[in-house]
Design a protein around this nucleic acid. Structure first.
Lengths: 111, 111
DNA sequence: TTGACATATTCCTATATGGATATATATTGA
DNA sequence: TCAATATATATCCATATAGGAATATGTCAA
């Protein structure tokens, strides 16, 4: 088997850095494809393909306005990622605490 | 260009569902490869290969104990994912709020 | 040293990519 | 209808998988 399709879920879709760039750019406001092309350093067909992937997994929504297509983020599609990583939050907080403790112990030694 | 390597960063590494399964399994405690193989429905070589990817991006750490290799999660490597998704949290909270408002408005209409 | 156990690596293959290029489709205005 | 603009799709190609099978490496016990 090969790797799962980029359109199989949000995890695969956002693995591509350019698509995260696009989502970052759309975070502030709805944008046309042309605006996205101008902002990213990508060819128009590449942007359209990335937008298709993002749309397929529900990460963006599109509407036509005249000749333009306006895309905006559908942030709720990112919640599964946020929630999955949250389950590990407790662990890294523990870990950072231990690092802090070790640093403090060393400082104490030197006194 | 093809897709970025699975070892290029944590985003790519966790795009594979089996690797998320492994991380979930390791979240509670350190485990040997054999235990992981038993818990997942995967062949031993596949597990070893997934573990290598996770290790390459710093998501797990390994230590030898006799014949066994014990793997544990390094949760801090997941913080970039958590923080990136957090930047969109405000957006989906807005969105959910609007949904709630619409639902309430409908209820109001029916009175 | 040898055999058994635990894990890692190599080789193979089907498959899906991302960028580039060319072309198709959709919309508007004249 | 026709030209111009905006976006989408098709095609080509180099590349990196993930799983399966076979094999190599590492460790221990006798």
């Amino acid at each position: 088997m090969a790797r799962a399709a980029t359109t199989s879920d949000a995890f695969n879709a956002v693995a591509e850095p350019r698509r995260r760039d696009i989502l970052n750019y759309l975070a502030t406001q709805e944008r046309s494809v042309g605006e996205i092309v101008a902002a990213m350093h990508l060819e128009q067909p590449s942007v359209s393909k990335h937008l298709k992937v993002l749309k397929d997994v529900g990460l963006v929504e599109a509407r036509r306005e005249g000749r333009q297509m306006l895309y905006k983020v559908n942030a709720t599609a990112l919640r599964p990622l946020h929630e999955w990583t949250s389950t590990f939050e407790r662990l890294w907080k523990h870990q950072l605490l231990r690092i802090t403790e070790r640093a403090e112990a060393k400082t104490e030694e030197k006194k």
